[in-house]
Structure formats: structure tokens, C-alpha cells
Design a protein around this nucleic acid. Structure first.
Length: 815
DNA sequence: GAGTTTGAAACT
DNA sequence: CAGTTTCAAACTC
């Protein structure tokens, strides 16, 4: 907390670090050379500041997540926890160890590459408060790890990661140890020296740093509140119980650890150093305990990050342990119990982030739920986080992310590489959630604040994703930050919540479909049902992933585009990056069109209206009065009749799109992103502030699949729209001989009609999954939805971030 | 909160 | 492909 401690950390710990095998391991693992680490150390203080801003500026999802995980990961010390509960989980995950290791290594590399520092990443991810808090944590951990530049961070994280060390990387660790220690020593010494110099040189900076630290310390204190002795005790008790249960399982793990010869004694120190914040702030907390908790916490994400199968395995293990019913839940619970402290940390962080530090949730109790300010349900999954971040009703709300789910999951499963958000399965969505999908949205939101309630809701969803994503990937996005600031840790609310938000956020309420049919919004959106859902007999949960996937497959077999976004963007991707893409919903059209007869397309019964798009020729509606664009071509909204001359409906559509775009472009980052992305994105990004949206949640389908534009619609109007921007977009779109899907997903104009004239889709390849790299749109999709890297969620998130930035910024930033 | 309306999804 | 049924959301009271 206090700077003095910091000094302590900087100085005293060194020996400990050196001694710790983890340290050695980290040193060995980190591709980065010690020098960098030193640099990082120096920069660290300053970086912390800069990082915050920088974070906003540039989100490096990958690095963040990874860094965060790495950082948080407890030292091997907590042999108990690790061996017991975590070890079990880890064992299950063992298969994934290699992956994890790769990820870490990858992350390390990526971090090096990425300018963003770990701090930044986390900062971005975490709410401002969190940032403050984290800095202390990170400061230590990260600091130790390396410069904020990230150079060291990755390696550090890797090293730190007890799991890897004990479980997977044992072999690797052994060899690394020797060098690492000395390196670390040198690095730390250098860092210390540098810091001292730095302090001397820049008194001002120091002051600023001190202030910052003070702030952090303050925040930390608040956060620490959770760490009250009582909590610690309870946690300990729980931990003991868990340990007992897990002992059987852990025996094998302990053997592994023994083999590794990781000095537990030292490990605590290391963990302490790493977790400086906790340790410093919370003297009460046992180092080992902290470590263990951290492990648990940290590990969970990693575990989750693993494939669904892995998750399942984990869940099984956790069940054995005996804590939660659901795999996710159980796992989470276990983690919580075992790693209360760690959870607390995390929770604190999240809370801070979510609540912007406001809420300390008060959870006098230690339970993670509390710490996360999660839903009372006790689920801890990403959803919870999402909830906390999300909704709050506050501007922030968070993300929907959770949802990202199945489809996302599917994608994830398809590309195992993407890993899921670290989140636990409990939150199905979160767990399953595809980090990738998530990541993209956050930026959107970030870029644009969601004003409308629905938008918020969507935003919440998105945020959820973000949160999840962030949690896993910790993408630093300005928007996220904003959200965080605004967001209260409150759980996301659904329909129950009043106001548009509630609607937007609401989940399904299926009673007979088991949430395995398109009736179910969650399922249709490709996300798992979450707590907020009031569905009955729901199978759309991570636990039933197989069923869900099978069902999904079945449905897709009937209709390949069943899960594709229902709305297609009319506007094409802006040729000029500078120009705004008219991604607005208005420009979009419903893939199949509506069939309204009584609602006149003026109510949400109408999918077009619900999606905020005008009716198109594909609509079979009667008495269309769609405010977003009539089927006949007359736009209710400020349609410019002049322009209509060009192309009847299309023109109208385009007009509407333009107008809407003009009005909404900024407002709806979603449109772009969403369109580009998959339905999942839709969920995430509902931020369009359409009137209806404000009142209600945007239909998940509302998001346009990027690639699909109704070719018919466009072709009908060969003539470019009168308006330049739109015209441009459309031109591209119109030109398209190439399949629209391929052309662009994200691009507004690219929107191709997914639907056949019949209204049934022409099945374009799944957006998320495959996309030919050739096409811009496809490429974007790939980037967004699919993590290029096989790596865990972090990578995926990173990809998304990139996309996001591009999409949010009009694709100015290219992926 | 219950009931009705609506239109998509699913089924035949 | 059309008609019907089922379903859940949207809406109303």
C-alpha cells in the first residue's frame, strides 16, 4: 500500500525472488532478457501512469489477459492450494499445459512486441480504481516481472505461474531455474538502482508516483477491506475443507510438485512479492494462502481458457472435490473457497473496475461472489463479472459477454485455439464465451458510449463479454474503462430490471424449448443461458455443451444461416478508412425480412424494426410503416426524397441507412462491429441507440452479419446512393460480384443479402469460422471472431481488439 | 404479474 | 411450398 512497502518490495524481496524457483523459472522462460526487465522496472512507476492513458489509447487484449493472468498467478508456494484443489484441476488440464505454456510464451512475446505494458493492459481492463489497486499488485508483480513495457511481464507471468511450473512446466522449470535466479537478482538490483536513480532524478515524477501510489494504496485499502481477517479465516476454513477433500486428488499433484522441488517456503515469498499488494495491504493474509488463492484464481482463467473439454474435465474434478453443482459453479466455488484471497483480489479488482472502485462490495464474507460482487447465485463465472461490470444500470454495465457463448463457443470449439475466456463455465456464457468475440465489442462500446438503455443493455452484454474477455484477456479499451468507471459492480439485470436496460439485458425466458431452439434468444444468439435467464429446463449451458452444439449443428444443417446475424448491413465497408462506415442499423436490412401483418412493422414484433433496420424488398410485411425504412422505400425517418429517385427502395434504404448512420453511426458502434461479427457480437453490441432499442433490447439478431448484404438489395440499386459516403459504401457493395459475405463483413456496404429470395439464407460460410482471408470482410471476420493464434483467449482477444479498433474507428486501424 | 397479441420458428 | 402449430417475446392491462 504505502510507498514504503513498495520500497520494501523493491528491495527486500529480491533475495526472495531469487531464491524462489518460480523466479528462476520465469527468468528462464522469459524470452526477454533481463535488461528489459530492468528497464521495465524503472519505467514502471511512470508507466503506471502512462499506462492508464495509454491503455485507453491502445488496447492490447492479448497482452492484457495474459499479463493479468500471469501476474495474478500465485507463486507455487501455496503448495496446499495448488496441490489440492488446483492441482486437481490442473491435472485435468494437464493436457492443456502445453497450450498454456505456449500461451504464456506467446504472451510474453506478444507483450514484448506490444508497446502496452501489463499495467496498462490491466488498467484498461480494470476499472480506474482497479487500476489503482492493481498497480500496487501489478506494480509488484509486474514490476518485478519487468518493465511495464511488457517485456518482462510475460516472462514473469510465465514464471510466476505456479500452475505451469508445478503442473506442466515442471520439466521446463528445472532447467530454467539456475539462470533465472541470477537474472532476477540482477534485474531486480538494477531495477532498484534505477528506481533510486529515477527517484533522485525526477523528484516530480516521484511525487506523482507517490501520489499515484497513495491513490492506489487507498484503493487497495478499500479493496483490502475484503481481506478482513474474518474473511481470511473463513477462507482458511474453507480452504482447509477443500484441501482435505482435494488431498486425495492432490496427492498426485503434490508428487509432481515434489519432483519439481519447488521450495514452498520460498514460493510464498515469491508470491508475496508478486502479490505485494495483498501482502502489503493485508498482513493478515497468509502468503501461502494468497498464493494459493491467486493460483486458484489465476489458474481458473487459464483452465477456462482451455478448451471446453478441458473445462468439462475441470468441472468434473471440481465436482469431485465437492463444491459446486455445476461444473462451472463448482469449479468456481472451489476456487473461491480455496482461493478466497485470490478471489478477493480479483473481486476487488473487478469490483473496482466494475464499480469503479465504488462498491466494495461488501462482502464481508469472503465468498467470491461477494468479492466479485457477483450475483448472489454464487456463480462466479464470467457472467458474474460481467454482471458486476455490466449492469449496473450504470452506464457501465457490462457486458454481455457472457454470452458469447455457444456460438462463440462453437467457434472456439471449432478453433480450439481460441480459448475461452478464463471465466468459469458457470456463467456459461462467460465460460464458453469466446474471448475473441468479446473483445471486439468492448472497444466498440468503449469508443462510443451507449446511451440508450438498450444500448446499455447491449452494452452490458458487450461489456460482459468485455469483462469476460478482459478478465481473460484484459483488453484495455477506453470504452471499457469508461464503462468501468460508470459501471457499478452490480450484477447485470435482465428484464427484471426496469428500464430499457433491463429489456436490453434480458435473457431468455424459455419454458418449452429448453433453450435449444431458435426461439431462445440466447441460443439463437449463440450464447449460453446465464443466470439472468429465467428459462426452464435449460440445456443451453456449458454443462450441456455437447447437446447445445449438436442441436446447433442440426439447426444449421437445416439452415446454415440460422445463427447468422439476421440483419445485414447495407453499407459497405468504407473504402476510405477515414470515412465513416455507415454501419448503422438503418443501413442494414433484415436478412430474411419480416412478415408482419398487424404490427405494421412499428413494434418489436417486427424483426426489422426490432433490429432497427428498415424493411426491404425481402420483407413480406403488410402495411409496413417501419420507421427505419419502409418496405416500399419510403423512410419514415428523415428520408430525403430527392435521393430516393435513384433507387426506389434501395435508395430509401440507403437513405435511411445514411440518416440512421449519421444519427447512429456514432451511437452504434455496434452496428459495425456487430455486423461484422457474428450474432454473438450482436448480443454484445447492441449499442445502437435506436429509439426502439432504447426502449427495448436490440434483438440479438439485430446485429448484422458482416458479410451478408443483400445482394439483391444492392443490386437493385446499381446506382450508388446519392450520398457520397453511402454511395461509396454501396458502390463497393454493388460492385460485388464477389460474394458479399466474402467482401466484407464489417463493411456496411458489403452487407450481402444472406437471404435467398425466399428469405432463406444463402448460406454464406459461417462468418465467424471461416473466412477467406482474401476478402476484407472475411479477413475482418477472421480476426474478430477467430483468434489467429491457437493460443488461449488472450490471443483471440487480441485479435478482436485489433478488429475492434478497426471497426470502432471506422477500420482506420487495420487489423 | 397475468393475460393477450404477435410473428418467428418449427412442424406437417 | 404452404399451412398449421408451437413458442417466446412483446405488449397490454
Amino acid at each position: 500500500m504505502d510507498t514504503p512497502e513498495r520500497s520494501k518490495i523493491a528491495g527486500a524481496p529480491i533475495s526472495k525472488f531469487e531464491d524462489s524457483p518460480i523466479f528462476n523459472f520465469i527468468n528462464n522462460l522469459s524470452p526477454i532478457q533481463p535488461v528489459k526487465s530492468v528497464h521495465g522496472a524503472q519505467s514502471f512507476p511512470s508507466l503506471s501512469y502512462a499506462s492508464i492513458s495509454s491503455v485507453f489509447s491502445s488496447p492490447h487484449v492479448n497482452s492484457q489477459k495474459e499479463s493479468r493472468f500471469l501476474i495474478r498467478q500465485p507463486s507455487p508456494d501455496s503448495s496446499k492450494f495448488e496441490t489440492s484443489s488446483e492441482s486437481v484441476v490442473e491435472n485435468n488440464l494437464c493436457t492443456g499445459l502445453s497450450n498454456v505454456t505456449k500461451l504464456f510464451s506467446y504472451s510474453a512475446v506478444a507483450q514484448e512486441k506490444s508497446s502496452v505494458t501489463c499495467l496498462l493492459n490491466e488498467a484498461t481492463v480494470d476499472p480506474p480504481d482497479e487500476c489503482l489497486t492493481q498497480p500496487s499488485n501489478l506494480a509488484q508483480s509486474q514490476y518485478d516481472c519487468g518493465s511495464p513495457n511488457h517485456n518482462m511481464t510475460p516472462s514473469y507471468g510465465i514464471k510466476v505461474d505456479p500452475k505451469i511450473n508445478t503442473d506442466h512446466a515442471l520439466d521446463e522449470l528445472v532447467p530454467f531455474v539456475p539462470d533465472g535466479v541470477e537474472r532476477r537478482k540482477i534485474l531486480f538490483a538494477t531495477e532498484i538502482e534505477l528506481q533510486e536513480k529515477h527517484q533522485q532524478e525526477g523528484s516530480e515524477q516521484d511525487v506523482a508516483e507517490c501520489d499515484w501510489e497513495d491513490l492506489i494504496s487507498n484503493d487497495a485499502d478499500e479493496m483490502l477491506i475484503f481481506d478482513s481477517p474474518i474473511e481470511s479465516e473463513t477462507c482458511k476454513d474453507q480452504d482447509e475443507n477443500l484441501e482435505d477433500k482435494a488431498n486425495t486428488l492432490s496427492s498426485s499433484i503434490s508428487q509432481l510438485t515434489d519432483v519439481v522441488d519447488i521450495p514452498q517456503n520460498k514460493s510464498p515469498e515469491v508470491s508475496y512479492d508478486l502479490c505485494l499488494k495483498n501482502a502489503t495491504e493485508d498482513p493478515i493474509v497468509d502468503n501461502s494462502g494468497d498464493v494459493g488463492e491467486q493460483h486458484g484464481v489465476d489458474c481458473t482463467p487459464q483452465i477456462f481458457s482451455g478448451t471446453s473439454q478441458k473445462q468439462a474435465v475441470l468441472s468434473d474434478q471440481t465436482q469431485k472435490i465437492g463444491k459446486g453443482n455445476n461444473t462451472c459453479t463448482s469449479f468456481v466455488c472451489k476456487v473461491d473457497s480455496q482461493h478466497h484471497r485470490g478471489m478477493r483480489r480479483r473481486c476487488l479488482v473487478f469490483e473496482v473496475s466494475g464499480a469503479s472502485g465504488k462498491k466494495s462490495n461488501n462482502n464481508s464474507t469472503f465468498q467470491p461472489s461477494v468479492s466479485y460482487s457477483l450475483p448472489s447465485t454464487g456463480k462466479f463465472t464470467s457472467e458474474d463479472r460481467r454482471l458486476t461490470l455490466l449492469r449496473p444500470g450504470s452506464s457501465l454495465s457490462s457486458r454481455m459477454l457472457p454470452g458469447i457463448g455457444l456460438h462463440l463457443n462453437t467457434l472456439a470449439t471449432v478453433s480450439k485455439d481460441r480459448k475461452v475466456a478464463p471465466e468459469t463455465p458457470s456463467s456459461g456464457r462467460c465460460l464458453v464465451s469466446m474471448p475473441c468475440t468479446i473483445s471486439p465489442f468492448p472497444p466498440l462500446r468503449a469508443s462510443k458510449s451507449l446511451d440508450t438503455e438498450k444500448d446499455q443493455c447491449r452494452g452490458n452484454e458487450v461489456r460482459d463479454f468485455e469483462d469476460v474477455h478482459n478478465d481473460s484477456c484484459e483488453v484495455p479499451t477506453v470504452g471499457v474503462r469508461e464503462d468501468l468507471n460508470h459501471s457499478s459492480p452490480k450484477k447485470k439485470k435482465r428484464r427484471s430490471d426496469n428500464g430499457g436496460e433491463s429489456e436490453a439485458c434480458k435473457r431468455c425466458n424459455c419454458k418449452k424449448s429448453k433453450c435449444l431452439k431458435l426461439y431462445c434468444e440466447c441460443f439463437a444468439a449463440g450464447i449460453y443461458c446465464v443466470e439472468p435467464c429465467s428459462c426452464q429446463g435449460c440445456f443451453n449451458k456449458p454443462v450441456h455443451e455437447e447437446i447445445v452444439l449438436a442441436t446447433r449443428k442440426q439447426i444449421e444443417s437445416r439452415n446454415p444461416l440460422a445463427f447468422a446475424p439476421k440483419v445485414i448491413r447495407a453499407s459497405e465497408p468504407v473504402q476510405d478508412p477515414g470515412e465513416e462506415t455507415n454501419n448503422t442499423p438503418a443501413s442494414a436490412r433484415h436478412k430474411r425480412g419480416c412478415n408482419c401483418k398487424k404490427s405494421s412493422c412499428l413494434k418489436k414484433y417486427c424483426e426489422c424494426y426490432q433490429s432497427g433496420v428498415g424493411c426491404s424488398a425481402s420483407c413480406r410485411c403488410e402495411g409496413c410503416k417501419n420507421a427505419f425504412g419502409r418496405k416500399d422505400g419510403a423512410d419514415e425517418i428523415e428520408h430525403e426524397e430527392e435521393e430516393k429517385n435513384d433507387c426506389g427502395k434501395q435508395r430509401d434504404e440507403s437513405d435511411a441507412s445514411q440518416q440512421n448512420a449519421v444519427a447512429q453511426n456514432d451511437e452504434h458502434p455496434l452496428a459495425d462491429n456487430i455486423l461484422a461479427v457474428s450474432p454473438c457480437f450482436q448480443i454484445c453490441s447492441p449499442s445502437v441507440q435506436l429509439p426502439f432499442l432504447s426502449s427495448g433490447k436490440p434483438p440479438r439478431s439485430s446485429l448484422l452479419p458482416v458479410g451478408y448484404q443483400t445482394s439483391k438489395m444492392r443490386r437493385k440499386c446499381d446506382v450508388p446512393l446519392p450520398r457520397g459516403k453511402i454511395d461509396k459504401h454501396f458502390k463497393t457493395a454493388l460492385d460485388d460480384d464477389t460474394p458479399e459475405i466474402l467482401r466484407n463483413d464489417s463493411s456496411p456496404s458489403a452487407g450481402v443479402k444472406t437471404c435467398s429470395p425466399n428469405g432463406k439464407r444463402v448460406s454464406p460460410p459461417h462468418i465467424s469460422l471461416g473466412m477467406s482471408p482474401n476478402r476484407k470482410g472475411a479477413r475482418k471476420l477472421i480476426l474478430k471472431s477467430i483468434p489467429s493464434f491457437p493460443s488461449l483467449s488472450s490471443t483471440a482477444s487480441g485479435n478482436y481488439t485489433v478488429n475492434y479498433s478497426s471497426s470502432s474507428f471506422g477500420s482506420s486501424t487495420m487489423s
